[in-house]
Amino acid sequence: MRVKKQKRHRKVVRFYSACFGFRDPYKVLCDGTFIHHLLQHRLTPADDVLAHLLGARALLFTTRCIIGELRSLGESHSEALEAAQELITARCDHENRVSALVCVESVIGETNSEHFFVATQDVDMRKKFREVPGVPVIYGLRNSLFIEQPSSKQKEFVKSTEEKRLHMNEAEYLKLHKKNLKDEMANNSENDMAEEPQVRKNISTAKRMLGVAEKSKFKRKMAKGPNPLSCKKKKRKYDTSIAKNQDRADGGPTKKKRIRKRKRSSKPDAPTS
């Protein structure tokens, strides 16, 4: 049973997220009756309990008028007053304190632009916000919390505005039109760059058919620099005779003498008598 209840709550949260733009973290505007109910049934810490209910992180808000109303109730609501003073204070433009219903109604406005969940135990306040599109209501029943299902008026409002949400508004149409113009200009520039070589090729073919020569074929011969080999300095030949005389003068190497070898005959000596 608990799993079914949780699925039903998640479905309601998805409805308001898809149709009215509610986003995580969810803002919950609590009045004095709801804060007192949480403390009375020990549903603490309140931000964790509401985060479990909504399936995402929750930020708890109240107003100065609600805090003033709790202060006027005396000692019976002193604990609720201390808890309310620890919550985030939503801005209300009331110089003098007004009732919680009037204050919350002024904060929500006609369209609930701040995307508040209204948490209350006040029956009149719950009936009031069933008629306002885009305002989900949270209430407590003993030690459990519930989210009211979207009313028939809220569902009718969603159906009537569905046609507008499906189609582009004027600002979105202008933005898309500008983007299409930029893309078209970029494509045209790319096509021009791709066609340029083909145009040049066609011009050269036409010149050839008309007998007009291109400038590149009649390049004028310009004087070039001298041949680098002809500019090389001649090497000086080395005179060997000068080197020999220089060696002799310096007592250098002298000419070797030829050594003669005696030849011995192979005939035997004559016998002596």
Score class of each variant (00 low, 15 high):
144 S>Y: 09
149 Q>I: 02
150 P>S: 02
154 Q>G: 00
158 V>H: 01
159 K>A: 10
160 S>L: 12
162 E>M: 04
162 E>I: 00
163 E>C: 00
166 L>P: 00
169 N>I: 03
172 E>Q: 15
174 L>S: 10
175 K>N: 13
177 H>I: 06
182 K>V: 06
184 E>I: 02
184 E>Q: 06
187 N>W: 05
187 N>P: 01
188 N>W: 06
189 S>A: 12
190 E>R: 13
192 D>P: 05
192 D>Q: 09
193 M>W: 04
194 A>P: 03
194 A>R: 10
198 Q>F: 04
200 R>F: 01
205 T>E: 11
206 A>H: 08
207 K>L: 15
208 R>T: 12
210 L>K: 14
211 G>V: 06
211 G>E: 08
212 V>P: 03
212 V>C: 04
213 A>Y: 11
215 K>G: 14
216 S>R: 13
219 K>L: 14
219 K>M: 13
220 R>C: 07
224 K>W: 05
224 K>V: 09
227 N>A: 08
228 P>R: 12
228 P>W: 03
229 L>R: 14
231 C>V: 07
232 K>C: 08
233 K>T: 10
234 K>R: 15
239 D>M: 06
240 T>E: 14
250 D>E: 12
250 D>N: 11
254 T>E: 15
254 T>H: 14
259 I>W: 02
261 K>C: 01
262 R>C: 03
264 R>L: 07
268 P>D: 05
